[in-house]
Amino acid sequence: MRQVDLPGAAHLVLDSGVRYLDPAPAVFEAMLEGWARQQKSRFLSEAGTIVPRVRLVRRFAGFTDQYPWEWTPGELEAFTVDIMSGAHPAVQSTIRSYHGALRMFCEFVADARYGWLAECEQRFGQFPVQIAHEWNTVAHVVDYEGQPGRRALTYDEVQALFDAADARVERVRRRGRKGVLAAWRDAAILKTVYAYGLRRRELARLDTVDFRRNPRAVQYGTYGSVQVRYGKASKGSPPKRRTVLTVPEMDWIVDVLTEWCEEIRPLLFPGSHPALWVTERRSRISMRSVNEAFRDARLDARLPEELDLHALRHSYVTHLLEFGYPALMVQQQVGHAWGSTTALYTSVSDEFRNRLLEQSLQTHPELWTETT
């Protein structure tokens, strides 16, 4: 096949003028570099996608103690069994993502257009093949592969979480310890996540200028809506943007944000830093800190361990639907491309479903059946 200057091609990565003393590791590193270049050409995220994939291939190579041109499907099966064993086995969705990444790497090095087949056969007398097949990898057969324990919080659980976060502020204040402002910030963060159905990264990347007036809800002032500029991106695309409106059932968030922006945040002396959520060191809060804020409040509230920060987003979707908002509006508020995704987030209460049933029976009395 004719040599083509594709991103990641062997002749563009390997130095033809160098004679390697140990060619095997040099070729393997060149393969990884070539695959990284090929992914960059598709505008995939380096930190979020490319680096983890390359790390996984290194991990798999270390497990097999072989190079890609020596791999067989049996090695993939042994690797799968290994990561499913032990005290902390990988969940199904993680294993499926691993299989997908290894499949893509094998597709890359086994594609003759990139030159790695000819390079390996010439140097080692072997060439890479596809090792991830339908019969030895996890199939994606269901829409939702998350942990069964993840669910929406009930209204009482949401209140208990917020009460625990507020109580932490008072507890730190009474002890006279440093950290009152941080505790106050963490309580406001949890309420904001729930009030707007935000993802962790979306919350952490908010700036003070992202809040806007809503001409149809002037009573909320500056906090009539929030512009989310770092929404979840599709592969090879920049972060998605959306505007989330403040809904009447969540209008208490206006007082929370007003207090934070006008009274509490200035005490951290953020200067010209644009971030809405700043640390005591005048930097933007990390996503890890957002997770820790939820974990601490959850422990204080004695809520189930399987609940995580993302459960507040599930709660937002569920509660908006229970408030009576159309599914399409809820879908747009949370930034889902498909209504089916929003449906997966929904776990309405029995009371809500019974209320809908009663409304339907009242609208259609002919559906009532006389019991004897």
Rank of each mutant, 00 (worst) to 15 (best):
G8P: 10
A9C: 12
A10D: 10
L12Q: 12
V13T: 06
Y20D: 13
A30H: 08
A30D: 12
K40Y: 03
F43T: 01
E46Q: 07
G48V: 01
V54Y: 02
Q66L: 15
D82H: 12
T94V: 04
G100N: 10
D111F: 08
V142Q: 10
R151K: 14
D156G: 12
V169L: 09
R175C: 11
L190W: 07
Y196E: 02
Y196S: 00
G197R: 02
L198Q: 04
R200C: 11
D207C: 14
R212V: 09
Y230Q: 09
P239D: 01
K240G: 04
R242G: 02
E249M: 09
V256K: 08
L257G: 07
E262L: 11
S272A: 14
L276G: 11
M287F: 00
A293F: 06
R295G: 01
P304C: 08
P304V: 07
A311P: 07
R313K: 04
Y316W: 05
E322L: 10
F323A: 13
P326F: 09
P326H: 12
Q331M: 12
G339I: 14
T341F: 00
S347F: 08
S347M: 10
S349R: 01
N354D: 14
R355P: 06
L356H: 10
L356T: 04
L367C: 05
T369N: 12
